[in-house]
Computed example of a mutant assay.
Amino acid sequence: MSFHYELIDHVQLAAPKNGEDQARKFYDALLGFKEIEKPDSLRKNGGVWFQAGSVHIHIGIEDPFCPAKKAHPAIRVKNIEAMKKYLKEKNVDFSIDELLPCANRFYVSDPFGNRIEFLEWM
């Protein structure tokens, strides 16, 4: 092939109509992502975009809405134990998964029921 893949630019997750404020509370206020401005040409579609370092998550509005309960992004974390402690302190439910060898990982659901994996390779 004369091309190669570099990295995933962003992951888009769905939210129901008018879900932008809930997304801001979860991704920005809780998880520490920062909202980034959408281009003018895409604002009419609704939704909101977030970034933390090189991780970009776009929340798009779907009507009718159906959450992604199995398909999910997996976000690599440094010092995942500190993240677990932080989420416990914030009363955020998550489920630990020990099935992947050499990975410390867990799943959390966003306010819309979308599954998100966080992991740290050991």
Rank of each mutant, 00 (worst) to 15 (best):
M122D: 13
Y27N: 00
N18M: 05
D63E: 14
E6C: 11
D110L: 01
F50S: 08
S2P: 09
R76K: 10
D40K: 11
G60Q: 09
E37N: 09
D40G: 11
R115Y: 02
D93R: 11
I8R: 04
M1L: 09
V11C: 10
A82M: 04
K85P: 05
K38W: 01
E37F: 08
F106R: 07
S2G: 12
K25W: 04
R43S: 03
Q22R: 15
A68M: 13
G53I: 02
I8C: 08
D9Y: 13
D21S: 14
A68K: 10
D40S: 12
S41L: 09
K17M: 10
P111C: 00
E35K: 14
Y107S: 03
Y86L: 07
Q12Y: 09
D21W: 04
L30R: 09
R24E: 12
W121L: 06
H56K: 15
L31W: 05
E6R: 15
I61C: 09
E35H: 06
K85V: 13
Y27S: 04
G53R: 07
V108D: 03
F65W: 03
I59L: 14
K90L: 10
D21Q: 15
R115G: 00
F33R: 02
F118R: 01
D40L: 11
V55K: 00
H72S: 04
N18G: 03
F106W: 02
V108I: 13
G46W: 09
D63Q: 12
H10L: 09
Q51N: 12
F33M: 05
E6I: 14
M83I: 03
L30V: 07
N79R: 07
C102R: 14
H56F: 14
H56I: 14
R115T: 03
F3Q: 07
L13A: 05
L87A: 05
N91V: 08
V48A: 07
Y27L: 10
K85I: 13
P39A: 06
L99F: 07
H10V: 04
A68R: 14
K69Q: 10
P101K: 02
L100T: 15
P67R: 00
W49R: 09
I80Q: 00
K70I: 15
R43H: 00
V77W: 01
D93E: 13
N104L: 12
A29V: 14
P16C: 03
R76L: 02
E98D: 11
E20C: 07
A71V: 11
A15W: 01
I36V: 13
R105P: 01
H4Y: 14
P39V: 04
G60S: 05
D93I: 11
G113R: 03
F50N: 05
P73N: 02
V92H: 02
K69D: 02
K25C: 10
K44V: 13
D97W: 04
P67Q: 02
V11R: 00
S95A: 03
Y107T: 00
I36H: 06
A52S: 13
A23N: 01
K78F: 03
E89P: 00
D63F: 01
V108Y: 05
D110P: 02
V92N: 06
E98Y: 11
K17V: 12
F33V: 04
L87S: 08
I59S: 04
V77L: 06
E6Q: 13
K84L: 05
K88H: 10
S95W: 01
H4A: 11
H58D: 06
V48H: 09
H56R: 14
Q22W: 08
K17T: 13
E117W: 10
W49P: 10
P67E: 01
F50L: 01
